[in-house]
């Protein structure tokens, strides 16, 4: 079965993480600063209208997605490296469809990104973020994060097919991830942005994932959250389809 084989890539990723969990912790430093320093200071300033939610609680889903998106977007580096080694050549000669490979790798990147949920909760809740931690809310958050991170990983794979060296890939990564973060609803509502930025943030996938995470963890609105997850999934499926079509290019 193809899905079982795709999930093998997730297993691969989890086994690698078990042998070397460094990334989970190094990636946690930035969000800790965002929540612990930026969040607590801005909460005192009370300069940003957050619709009745305290600021720390407001930015926690935003910072969670920022951290997860960085991990997902960096996943392509692995592919750049695997092309230089023989792994990608080998994988492409296995009896697997290109779709299975891309779907599997996308879910694998999402699994890595998902580790940030635990990290952020462990940081934000003790600092005073008031989050809905019911099983339903958490399940929805996991779903939203998985769907979003899988799409971003596919986007990263897509970039890897064009950026053939690690250096170039790192460069483009820097150029994409920070703007996506700042032009989203992560640390301020989009209503306070100037109009052009608002327009951009409405096509920014991060905005929708963060929206879904807020609906699950902050507003406790499962139905609205599910609707957002559907939107996110459409984006992710499109990315996976596109990456599948272009995967041949990475080795051709």
């Amino acid at each position: 079965m193809s899905l079982a084989r795709a999930l093998t890539f997730v297993e691969l990723e989890l086994r690698r993480l078990r042998h070397d969990p460094t990334e989970v912790f190094t990636r946690a430093v930035q969000p800790i600063l965002w929540i612990g320093v930026f969040g607590t200071v801005m909460a005192r300033v009370r300069a940003i209208p957050t619709g009745g939610v305290d600021y720390l609680t407001f930015i926690t889903p935003g910072v969670l997605m920022q951290s997860s998106s960085f991990i997902a977007m960096a996943y392509g580096i692995m592919l750049v490296w695997e092309r230089e080694s023989g792994i990608l050549k080998k994988v492409l000669t296995l009896p697997l469809s290109r779709l299975t490979v891309v779907l599997g790798r996308s879910l694998a990147g999402a699994a890595r990104a998902l580790t940030q949920l635990l990290v952020i909760l462990l940081v934000a809740v003790p600092l005073g973020a008031k989050l809905d931690l019911s099983p339903i809310a958490l399940a929805l958050a996991v779903l939203a994060l998985l769907a979003g991170a899988a799409g971003l990983t596919a986007l990263s794979i897509l970039l890897a097919t064009f950026m053939k060296t690690r250096e170039r890939f790192m460069g483009i990564l820097q150029a994409i991830t920070m703007p996506l973060f700042f032009a989203s609803n992560a640390i301020y509502p989009i209503e306070v942005m100037p109009a052009p930025l608002q327009a951009f943030s409405r096509v920014n996938p991060l905005t929708y994932v963060i929206q879904a995470l807020r609906e699950a963890l902050v507003y406790s609105n499962p139905l609205a959250c599910l609707q957002s997850i559907v939107d996110i999934s459409l984006f992710s499926l499109a990315m996976i389809a596109l990456a599948t079509l272009l995967l041949g290019k990475i080795v051709e």
Binding site: R5, T8, E11, L12, R16, G86, K90, V91
Partner: peptide, 23 residues
């Protein structure tokens, strides 16, 4: 077997075989 190495060096030999067996 490609010319360049095609195994994950951050996994054990057994895990490489297991992952590839599943794939």
């Amino acid at each position: 077997v490609p010319q360049e190495f095609s195994v994950w060096n951050d996994l054990t030999g057994y895990e490489n075989l297991l992952v590839y067996a599943k794939l």
